[in-house]
Design a protein around this nucleic acid. Sequence first.
RNA 1: GGAGUCGUCGCAUAGUUCGGCCUAGUGCACCACCCUGCUAAGGUGGAGAACUCGUAAGGGUUCCGAGGGUUCAAAUCCCUCCGACUCCGCCA
Length: 431
Amino acid sequence: MIDPVVLRENPDVLRRSQEARGAAVSLVDDAIEADLARRAALSTFEELRAEQNVFSKKVGQAAGDEKKALLAEVQQLSAKVKDASAVVVEVEAAYDIAVRKIANPVLDGVPAGGEEKFVTLREVGTIPTFDFEPRDHLELGEMLGAIDIARGTKVSGARFYFLRGIGARLELALMNMALDRALEAGFIPLITPTLVRPEIMEGTGFLGEHADEIYYLPADDLYLTGTSEVALAGYHSDEILDMTGGPLRYAGWSTCYRREAGSGGKDTRGIIRVHQFNKLEMFVYTTPDEAETEHQRLVAWQEGMLQSLGLSYRVIDVAAGDLGSSAARKFDIEAWVPTQDAFRELTSTSNCTTYQARRLDTRYRGENGKTTPVATLNGTLATTRWLVAILETHQQADGSVIVPEALRPYLGGLEVMTPLAPLTPSTPVTA
RNA sequence: GGAGUCGUCGCAUAGUUCGGCCUAGUGCACCACCCUGCUAAGGUGGAGAACUCGUAAGGGUUCCGAGGGUUCAAAUCCCUCCGACUCCGCCA
């Protein structure tokens, strides 16, 4: 939710942001109007209510005829209060709707425009070259007995898979490595619920733009989360946090579920885009003036992971039009995927400033002792998708894959993953 | 799933019988000052969350798990929901 003070005193900030996002500028004026209507109704109600309170007190003290007379008088007033109160409810609901339509104002420097207007901040690492025809991650995964799509589909349908053998181990190794990095950086590990109540899903803003991406269980009125960000953001909802010890950093591990509606036909091969995967997510609560610095730290931790894994990548500053409504700025890191001849997103980190915290009512006590919303940030530290880049980048001609050094301690020192069967690309995985 | 007990301003509690004296009291913790030769005790005062009116000083309104209802008036009565605990049942 946007800052109502900004709406009142500095609406141009919001107008410029809406413009950059390619969203409707008129929403700002709608909200201003709704705010005025709301405050007017509130004043009317409160004055009547104050009057009624005085009367009620008198009634309580009076007796006999005097009481009867007072009662007759106050009854009309009571009706008026009721009406005024109904108006307030109505007008506040309208205000709420109007204000929630406005996205978080983007930070200075965020490139304006749609998805393709992103700015590449840097490219790191050398793009791998091969003196043989590189295999894609699925072919490698099948040779290694690491990925079993056929059986995933048999059991659960399209976009499901089994990670098996070295594949299963590799994912756990990756997650553990990421967790160790997070611990070094002072994060508190958290294994989060993946089913959440509607108000939490709503509060994190996912029910708006991502509504049809989300699995819903009607029998229990619960949503399956597409990222542990949801639970991590809800963790401190309705709380006043102590920020004197610096930022509160959490590393949330969870399985993530996404319907991938609307991405039909895209990335149908392998495990690039799937309904279920695992992710270690960083989530930070901090003061608003620290948020941008923290955002840079999150990117640095992400880059540290990718570098340790020997991946080449680029960092992009995502364009305003491609930001979620909660994010004021977002950096994506995309790793080079050799067989696609392209960079593919492996991480994303958003600075949500106070927007998300306002919705979830997460505050801290500022210098003057007043409570004020915190800033929240989130970012990926590892996901299943990373296996794609790792396998393809470090493959050798015989279909074996070199284990990046940083991962070896997590795989009992294993240096190379070797194919199960002789080289026949279509070799089915056998049990 | 069944039966029962319960949910009060950071923590702990009073208040709910029988609606108005609740402007929600008290203890602990907290902040400021005073006193005191000292990591203590005592004294005085302050202090919940949110919205809103006002340049300000200072007002007003709301909040007793959440939401409705009854009433001139609800922490208190009624309904629904959420949560905690206890016992029973079931269980990959």
